[in-house]
Simulated assay, not measured.
Amino acid sequence: MSVKKEKPVKIKKCLSDRIADIAINGIAVLMIAAIVYPLWFIIIASFSNPADVANGEVWLWPKEWVLDGYRELFRQSEIWRSYGNTIFYTVAGTFAALLINIPAGYAMSRKDMMGRKWINLYYLIPMFVSGGLIPVYLVVQQFNLIDSVWVMILPFSVSTYNIIVARTFFHTSIPEGLWEAAQIDGCGTIRYFFLFALPLSKAIIAVIGLWTAVGIWNSWFNALIYLQDESLQPLQLLLRRILISNQSLLGAATGEMAADLRRVSDMMKYASIVISTVPIMCLYPLLQKYFNQGVMIGAIKE
């Protein structure tokens, strides 16, 4: 005896609903275009003649393919070393931040933790009241971290905001019954964290990891303050030094030489933006699944 499958009932939308859908989709498309087009324009401008860009002749595609900006940029002998420094600081700094902030957030989410309220207050005060640049510099100097690779990793690995987000995630996403069941089986706190809580926290790990990686990759001020040795400086600081040097040469040049220097300087400016942002942007598609989930869950108030 065959069973007839019921066809899904199609709900017809009224005219007002259709108009609302069109309006919402149109606004979404405009918002996406407003975000994507500036990024695309920077990319095509880095391959275009600066004169065409200045005259408004470059819109969706380069009018003339020019690679002088990238050639001049990669002629700098220090750029590959600075690239390696940035990658090392990003990977090691992200690992250190996860190693510190995730366990701290889990510990602060436990209701049976002694002195939990006072520890929360202890973490919150520096979030609103900073010691200032000079006291922080003196502390870093006393630990002999000036001109050291660790100055870009250890002193700024603790983030109160990330700890609070992790605490909220553990409190709202992992059921308390799981901890009680683990206790019955003789599981301790540390074992429970590594065997149960941590495997269920891929979303918040991806979120904090991405936030930290983007922050370290784009950071240049800490390197400017604490790293005087040029062999340890990251990519962003090298690009800043190259652009400032080009501007100084441009101010001293005259005539045809000034026009050539301005052309090369403009092309290097766009090329430096591309090579310093594209690698970190490639991480987002890999972490998008966990990133969206972690942001929504971590945003729930305790």
Results as ranks from 00 to 15, higher is better:
Gly132Glu: 02
Ala51Asp: 10
Met268Leu: 11
Ile244Pro: 04
Ala203Ser: 15
Gln76Thr: 15
Leu243Gly: 08
Leu195Gln: 01
Ile102Leu: 14
Glu72Leu: 15
Leu124Asn: 05
Tyr106Phe: 15
Phe291Tyr: 15
Ile184Gln: 00
Ala28Arg: 12
Tyr37Trp: 04
Ala299Glu: 03
Tyr161Ala: 01
Met281Gly: 03
Glu180Tyr: 00
His171Ser: 06
Arg116Ala: 09
Pro175Leu: 07
Val3Leu: 14
Lys13Gln: 10
Asp229Ala: 11
Pro8Arg: 09
Leu286Gln: 11
Ala33Asn: 10
Glu230Trp: 08
Leu224Ser: 07
Asp68Gln: 12
Asn55Trp: 09
Trp150Met: 03
Phe169Gly: 05
Ile19Gly: 13
Phe156Gly: 07
Val53Cys: 10
Leu232Thr: 02
Trp59Phe: 06
Ile184Pro: 00
Gly132Trp: 01
Arg167Ser: 06
Gly215Val: 04
Gln293Val: 14
Glu230His: 09
Ala252Gln: 11
Tyr290Ala: 12
Val295Phe: 08
Ile163Tyr: 13
Gly56Glu: 04
Val66Met: 09
Ala51Phe: 12
Leu99Arg: 10
Thr160Asn: 14
Gly294Asp: 08
Ser48Gly: 11
Phe143Thr: 00
Phe221Cys: 08
Asp68Lys: 14
Ile204Met: 15
Lys63Gly: 14
Arg18Gly: 07
Asn292Ile: 14
Ile100Asn: 08
Ala34His: 10
Tyr83Thr: 01
Leu232Glu: 02
Tyr192Pro: 00
